[in-house]
């Protein structure tokens, strides 16, 4: 991967190279944002809202999002539901199995910071961002499918601002 990572930096130094990299950025970002495949990772109540968002009325397929069962084939992970300490090791493992570039949504109150299980609870991890880096937080208990779709659109905006020259530096430190 070493040479390919350095290619954008070299191209930029050539005269007119900036135009090439920004157009390639645009193409890559468009294609990445329009076909995010998410991994089925429903833990608790928010999983049902995630399934409802992918089903008939609030269709995810029109954004190009299809669910894939295996983390190797997905590039988006909805952490939907409460994460306990017992499960957090497995969540980290699944995150590491997803190939770069990968994105994480913290869906629902429990994944954002523990939710209703913050007080008096000995087994719940208070927020998934203690183990993996999160891109978008979606509050709600459970959030409506419309909130979930707004989160996806915000993620698409975020992806469209990425640049190829970010690849050279490790931008996702786990």
């Amino acid at each position: 991967m070493g040479i390919i990572e350095k290619v954008p930096a070299y191209i930029e130094r050539l005269p007119g190279g900036g135009i090439v990299t920004t157009s390639m950025d645009w193409v890559l970002n468009q294609s990445r944002a329009s076909s995010l495949w998410y991994m089925l990772f429903g833990l608790a109540c928010c999983a049902i809202e995630m399934m409802a968002a992918g089903a008939s009325r609030y269709d995810f397929d029109r954004f190009g999002m299809i669910f894939r069962a295996s983390p190797r084939q997905a590039d988006l992970m909805f952490v939907a539901g409460t994460v306990t300490h017992k499960m957090s090791k497995r969540v980290k493992l699944l995150y590491e199995q997803m190939a770069e570039p990968s994105y994480v949504f913290a869906m629902g109150g429990c994944a954002c910071n523990g939710g209703p299980f913050y007080y008096d609870c000995y087994s719940v991890l208070k927020g998934i961002d203690q183990v993996i880096p999160v891109d978008i937080y979606i509050p709600g208990c459970p959030p409506r499918p419309e909130s979930l779709m707004e989160g996806c659109l915000k993620l698409q905006e975020k992806i469209k601002k990425e640049k190829m020259s970010d690849w050279a530096s490790d931008r996702k430190e786990v």
Partner: peptide, 24 residues
């Protein structure tokens, strides 16, 4: 129900506290 490396006693007893336990 508890995870494998659980080493903090018996949580459902009255008056138990442990790490990461925030009473209301």
């Amino acid at each position: 129900l508890l995870y494998d490396d659980w080493d903090y006693g018996y949580p459902m007893r009255k008056g138990w506290t442990g790490p990461d336990f925030v009473p209301m």
